[in-house]
């Protein structure tokens, strides 16, 4: 008998495969409609500037975020995007508030509900924003609000961090100190923080394993 998880994989793969097809059809249909196929050289040179880093980050993100998002959340989150600043924190916050474990089936469904809700609300807000652009643009671009939008990530990870760090302070200290020292010494790494997420996870898993084996956890 098919379990819920099996059916999520089945439908998830169909949605993702169709999603990939649609994503590729966007440039294809535009090229066909305008009869404007770009020079291979331009696409290649453009890709050269982003693919080495973003292909690596994209693949690493799957291994890092899939265990946190659950099956349905991963199939959905990787199509709807904005994982780091939106979908992953939304899922973590929802599971924390509902008091469910990420690896349990309860965690799986709560995470999926949060990611789906977040994707729908984001899509609606952007659509509404585009329709009301004339009214919203001056407000969103006003210098008064600039610091607020510049500080979304600190505002997000300050609140989320205090919950997880206070609950797991023994295993949190080492990766935190490691990352703070690393970013102070090499500030330019801030632009590729995605690559450092699995590094932080590896440091944390290593320290946890040592403490666990010594019976300190």
């Amino acid at each position: 008998m098919k379990t819920y998880n099996d059916s999520v994989h089945f439908y998830g793969r169909i949605w993702v495969a169709l999603g990939i097809f649609l994503m590729i059809m966007v440039p294809v249909s535009t090229c066909v409609y305008y009869d404007a196929w770009p020079a291979f050289e331009h696409v290649f040179k453009g890709l050269l500037g982003v693919a080495p880093i973003f292909w690596t980050v994209g693949i690493i993100e799957v291994f890092t975020y899939a265990p946190m998002l659950g099956t349905g959340g991963t199939y959905l989150g990787f199509i709807t995007g904005n994982l780091t600043s939106l979908k992953v924190p939304a899922a973590l916050n929802a599971m924390q508030a509902a008091n469910v474990e990420a690896t349990s089936e309860e965690g799986e469904v709560i995470s999926t509900i949060a990611i789906a809700t977040s994707a729908i609300v984001t899509t609606l807000i952007i659509a509404l924003g585009v329709l009301m652009l004339g009214y919203l643009q001056p407000l969103l671009e006003s210098p008064v609000l600039t610091p607020a939008f510049d500080n979304i990530l600190p505002a997000l990870f300050g609140g989320l961090g205090v919950v997880y760090i206070s609950k797991n302070w023994k295993i949190a200290i080492a990766p935190l100190v490691f990352m703070i020292v690393l970013f102070v010494l090499v500030p330019s790494l801030a632009s590729s923080v995605g690559v450092l997420v699995p590094v932080g996870a590896l440091v944390c898993i290593g320290v946890s394993r040592i403490l666990y084996k010594k019976g300190k956890l």
Partner: peptide, 20 residues
């Protein structure tokens, strides 16, 4: 513990970035 370590790895990277 493994799952908590994954969460904390992500949080550490972003908290560390605030110090850049």
């Amino acid at each position: 513990i493994f799952m908590s370590s994954m969460f904390l790895g992500m949080i550490s990277a972003f908290v560390g970035m605030l110090f850049s």
